[in-house]
């Protein structure tokens, strides 16, 4: 026993070094599971506060661009207002209603909340940005985030009380379901970690006609993103010879260098859809196991 204490005493520096190194590597390689842990939430709250102070200064440098984008979006929304349309038949009046479901059989699937980006990087392989809305404002994991000009920007991955961490589209583990506007084919938009201006659209079969400049939208089969938001435009057409699919280089329409005002979009059916998906998998497995 005494020898053990002597040993620890003699080699305590290298032991401390090895232990701390172990802790650091454990943090690093367990990050995906670890990021829900409590004290990263606390750190998130701290860095969030410092980041929002910094952001108050930084915002001034991008005001002009931001205003142009906001103005464009406002303009497109103004065009949708009911007062722009007159009914030819004066006996029928169109009534706009804001309740969750109405008698015409339509109901609300998506709700949007505005937020401001307080920290953002594009230089890493795994880029996250931080927004100034959190659990207190109703933000939950897996909500979609679109930029102020209406293009897909990322997905919420971690939430603290007043801030949330968003996995940007520029993240090598990111994959967003996207579709071609021209043909409606579904594919997956991913990032290869190289150039922050381009995403890669995979799994579009070669039989589809694709041209340079085609628009890529978020697809209607995504659980996170509402359909029809812009992802980007095709800038280069390549083939993946292994499986006969396209490898399309997509110029992102969101400018990740100066994200500022964003909208967080909640899919109100998200839980039900994911639950159904999971239950289906379980059911199929059971059918496979039991003899028919």
């Amino acid at each position: 026993m005494r020898n053990i204490f002597l040993f620890i005493r003699r080699y305590r520096t290298i032991l401390t070094f090895l232990i701390l190194q172990g802790v650091a590597l454990w943090f690093l390689f367990n990050y995906n599971r670890f990021h829900r842990a409590k004290f990263l939430g606390v750190a998130n709250e701290m860095t969030g506060r410092i980041n929002s102070q910094y952001n108050r200064v930084e915002d001034y440098f991008f005001l002009r661009l931001e205003n142009q984008r906001l103005n464009r979006l406002n303009d497109s929304l103004l065009n949708l207002l009911p007062r722009n349309f007159a009914s030819k038949d004066t006996t029928v009046q169109v009534v706009e209603d804001s309740v969750m479901s109405d008698t015409t059989g339509k109901y609300r699937r998506y709700i949007s909340r505005p937020a401001v980006v307080v920290y953002n990087t594009v230089n890493a392989k795994k880029n996250y940005f931080q927004i100034n809305r959190g659990a207190n404002q109703g933000i939950k994991d897996n909500m979609a985030v679109i930029s102020s000009d209406g293009s897909a920007a990322g997905i919420v991955v971690n939430v603290s009380a007043n801030f949330s961490q968003v996995m940007s589209l520029l993240h090598i583990q990111n994959s967003v379901s996207a579709s071609l506007k021209r043909s409606g084919d579904f594919g997956t938009a991913e990032w290869d970690g190289n150039d922050p201006r381009f995403l890669i659209l995979k799994r579009i079969p070669k039989t589809t006609e694709v041209k340079k400049g085609d628009t890529v939208l978020t697809s209607s089969v995504s659980f996170n993103f509402p359909p029809g938001y812009m992802v980007g435009t095709i800038s280069e057409i390549n083939f993946d010879n292994a499986n006969g699919m396209y490898l399309l280089k997509v110029k992102t329409s969101a400018n990740f260098y100066n994200l500022q005002q964003v909208h967080v979009i909640e899919n109100l059916d998200y839980n039900e859809q994911v639950k159904l998906n999971a239950e289906t998998k379980v059911k199929i497995e059971q059918v496979k196991k039991s003899p028919r």
Binding site: I14, L20, L25, F29, L40, K126, Q165
Partner: peptide, 20 residues
């Protein structure tokens, strides 16, 4: 630094080596 860049452990491991 790691908590700012959201990479827990990466810079900590490198700094620890430098300090050692």
């Amino acid at each position: 630094l790691d908590y700012f860049t959201m990479t827990p452990g990466l810079h900590a491991a490198a700094c620890l080596l430098v300090a050692y």
